[in-house]
Amino acid sequence: MTEEILRVENLNKFYGDRHILHDINFTLHQGEVLTLLGPSGSGKSTLIRCLNGLEDFSSGAVYFKGEKIKPTDKNWQEIRQKIGMVFQSYDLFPNLTVMENILLAPTKVQKRAKDQVAQEAEGLLKDVGLEKYADSYPRELSGGQKQRIAIVRALIMHPEVMLLDEVTASLDPEMVRGILQIMTKLSKKHHMTMIIVTHEMGFAEQIADQVLFLEDGRILENTPGKAFFAQPKTERARDFLESMDF
């Protein structure tokens, strides 16, 4: 068994009186890809945001490499350097160039040497086919290009796990494929541990080691990827897959 990266235990989350996440439990191992599926409003974003402390939760615990994360601001800030996250809205910092966007956190947060990071950044930019855009500003890029930069910006921190929340959902269809390829390559070639929220079912089936199916804040299924797509256990999951035209 490979090393455990993230474990969630009995996590509950409320917004005011509304119970948003009910007793969430799962474990994620090194190199695994977990896809988080479920209808809109089921709590996928909320769950993924609890994993790096962008949302605080009401009870339960998150463990990083076997160690329980004490939910203080300071702790989360440390941990976030090892948990990369990319959002649906491709929000680069609009006042910084592409290169400045990428270099900001490694040099200022991790205090790494700028020229080394810059070299690495050039390599990563080349990997995603955007080496020409280092000095462009975000507003000069298309949505798909911005999203690729956002992925590079997260990767350069050398995260041990990546959280990707519907990163293709706001993109034009022709942009989607490139991003999916990048994620596939990250998993297959670099064995990156990832949690992916997506509505691209074909992609999910092909990449998922593990599927969490969420509805109304509850995990209805926690199944190996192949099994989920071949034979969903619950009716709800079956309906969901059907509704996704799959």
Binding site: R49, N52, G53, L54, Q77, E78, R80, Q81, I83, G84, M85, F87, D91, L92, F93, L104, A105, K108, V109, Q110, A150, R153, A154, M157
Partner: peptide
């Protein structure tokens, strides 16, 4: 959120 996610 983006800034926080980068560990700032």
């Amino acid at each position: 959120d983006n800034g926080k996610a980068l560990g700032m």
